[in-house]
Simulated assay, not measured.
Amino acid sequence: MITYQLNPTLTTADFIDILERSTLGIRRPLQDAVAMEQMFRYGNVYVGAFDGKILVGLARVMTDFVYTSYLSDLAVDVAYQKRGIGKTLIQEVQRATPKAKIILVSAPAAEGYYPKIGMKHHAHCYQLAPGDDLVQNG
């Protein structure tokens, strides 16, 4: 039976481990210990999914609790996917931040998943990568 816990006691190593066991590990700087520590430290809401004592899923959120919750990581161990764990993690984030809308940037392989569970697509997302400059007179 999978159980869910708000803000479980985890370490950066636990965070890296669940990312490695999910499909997110290939898109995160797992080999950069400083970056991973900062990513882990500055999330302010975590929801863990556990099979006994084993972490099998994790939602990492940055939120102001009243307007926006940015779901920056939704990681489910590949061996546990397609069991509703990701959906339940999102529902637990909703419970933890009930006034805030949840926003995420989908991994390419997961783009079809979010509409299936009721999330709405939003076309107005932009990014500015490190080192990118804004255009003058834009």
Results as ranks from 00 to 15, higher is better:
residue 92 E to L: 01
residue 34 V to Q: 13
residue 45 V to Q: 11
residue 50 F to R: 07
residue 116 K to V: 06
residue 111 E to M: 12
residue 123 A to I: 13
residue 41 R to Q: 12
residue 90 I to W: 00
residue 62 M to R: 09
residue 93 V to T: 06
residue 75 A to M: 05
residue 104 L to H: 09
residue 70 Y to M: 15
residue 38 Q to M: 10
residue 40 F to Y: 00
residue 125 C to T: 15
residue 40 F to Q: 04
residue 113 Y to P: 05
residue 57 G to L: 00
residue 79 A to H: 09
residue 82 K to I: 11
residue 121 H to W: 12
residue 116 K to A: 12
residue 128 L to K: 15
residue 35 A to Q: 13
residue 84 G to C: 02
residue 111 E to K: 14
residue 112 G to K: 08
residue 124 H to Y: 10
residue 55 L to K: 02
residue 86 G to W: 02
residue 31 Q to N: 10
residue 102 I to F: 09
residue 70 Y to E: 13
residue 125 C to Q: 15
residue 50 F to M: 07
residue 83 R to S: 05
residue 115 P to A: 01
residue 86 G to F: 03
residue 70 Y to H: 11
residue 98 P to D: 03
residue 104 L to F: 06
residue 36 M to F: 05
residue 92 E to W: 06
residue 118 G to E: 08
residue 87 K to A: 00
residue 104 L to Q: 00
residue 125 C to N: 14
residue 84 G to I: 00
residue 89 L to G: 03
residue 47 V to N: 00
residue 48 G to W: 05
residue 113 Y to L: 03
residue 99 K to H: 11
residue 68 T to P: 07
residue 41 R to M: 01
residue 123 A to W: 07
residue 70 Y to T: 09
residue 97 T to H: 05
residue 116 K to G: 10
residue 126 Y to F: 14
residue 115 P to Y: 05
residue 76 V to D: 03
residue 72 S to L: 09
residue 29 P to V: 04
residue 117 I to Y: 10
residue 53 K to W: 08
residue 76 V to L: 01
residue 103 I to A: 11
residue 38 Q to E: 12
residue 65 F to L: 15
residue 55 L to F: 03
residue 97 T to R: 05
residue 67 Y to C: 11
residue 45 V to D: 08
residue 104 L to Y: 08
residue 88 T to A: 09
residue 123 A to V: 10
residue 41 R to G: 02
residue 44 N to H: 09
residue 52 G to P: 11
residue 126 Y to C: 13
residue 98 P to A: 00
residue 69 S to Q: 10
residue 87 K to N: 08
residue 32 D to R: 02
residue 82 K to S: 14
residue 32 D to L: 07
residue 90 I to M: 05
residue 88 T to P: 04
residue 83 R to Q: 15
residue 72 S to E: 14
residue 108 P to R: 02
residue 118 G to K: 05
residue 78 V to G: 15
residue 98 P to G: 03
residue 36 M to E: 02
residue 31 Q to V: 04
residue 106 S to Q: 03
residue 42 Y to T: 13
residue 83 R to C: 08
residue 100 A to D: 04
residue 51 D to F: 09
residue 29 P to S: 02
residue 63 T to L: 01
residue 44 N to K: 11
residue 101 K to F: 14
residue 75 A to Y: 01
residue 49 A to Q: 06
residue 62 M to Q: 12
residue 59 A to K: 04
residue 61 V to Q: 09
residue 59 A to Y: 00
residue 62 M to Y: 06
residue 90 I to T: 03
residue 51 D to H: 15
residue 37 E to Q: 07
residue 75 A to H: 01
residue 101 K to H: 14
residue 55 L to Y: 02
residue 95 R to L: 12
